[in-house]
Structure formats: structure tokens, C-alpha cells
Amino acid sequence: MRLTKAFNRSLWVFHLNTGSCNGCDIEIVATLTPRYDPERFGIKLVGSPKHADVLLVSGPVTRAMADRARRVYEQMADPKVVMGIGSCMSGGVFYDSYNLVGPLEEHIPVDVFVPGCPPRPEAIIDGVVKAIAKLERLEGEGK
């Protein structure tokens, strides 16, 4: 896969927890550690959504975090890709809760879903590769 000029060196990721159980968050961090080491491809976590190309969202979107998810998404510069990590993104075991306002795609557009409870680091990396392909397409369309 050929990366476009904007992304051929780095893909910066911002992680947003919308009330997850920590399972996915820990797997996301595990993905970034030496065993899998995606930093050799320039993939790394950044501290501000304004620096990020990809927004990783974990958790079933609690009432308190829905608005924050929208605000974080709006702060990101185009082109951007949103990844939803984990099965509870669409309810999952928490399907009948009173405090969840998911699924995530009702609040922000989601490009890549990585299912699993929690997904393995390999699955998350696979999702990021799909996100790169999507970013490449967006770039080609001039968005």
C-alpha cells in the first residue's frame, strides 16, 4: 500500500475513553508497546486531538461523555478517520443500560470498527491499516 504524502511518515492517534471498562484501553496501550511496536511505522499516541489523524474511541458512550466525544471530533483537523474499538460500541453486554447513549455512530461518523471484547492488539493494528487506506482515499478525493 502506498501512503500519500501527508501520511507517509507518520500516523498520529488520539485515544478517547467514553466510559469503557479499561479492557480496550489497556489493549490499545499494549498495541503501542515493544511487543507489537507500531512506532516503527510512525504510529504513536498524541496528547491533543488537534495533532491527530486518527481518533480511537473505546467504550459504550456514557451520557456524560457523548458531548465530549463530539467536541473532541470537531477539534481534529481534516482529513481524519474515527476508529471504534470494542464490541460495546454498539451496546454489547451493556445493551439495556439506562446511562448509555450509544452507539457511537449516532454522535460522530465512524470509519473503522474493531470488534472484540476486547480486540487483540493484532486486530487493532489491522484496523489502523484499514484507516490508513481510508485516509489515502480521502486525500485522493481532496477532502
Binding site: 475513553n17 466510559g19 479499561n22 456514557t62
Partner: peptide, 30 residues
């Protein structure tokens, strides 16, 4: 901010189902 109402959900399920819900209270000390 993380409140998911797990206890409330649990009171509508049976113990065999709840055991798997309790795993999801926390992904580290499930």
C-alpha cells in the same frame, strides 16, 4: 463519567449471566 449502570442491569439478569457481566466491570481486575 464511566457510569454504565452495571448493578441495575445485573438486577435484571440471572447469576450465570451476571458472572460474565462482572468481568466487564473492569478490564484489568475482572
Amino acid at each position: 463519567k464511566c457510569h454504565r449502570g452495571i448493578e441495575w442491569m445485573g438486577m435484571r439478569r440471572n447469576p450465570v449471566q451476571i458472572v460474565h457481566l462482572t468481568d466487564r466491570i473492569c478490564g484489568i481486575c475482572g
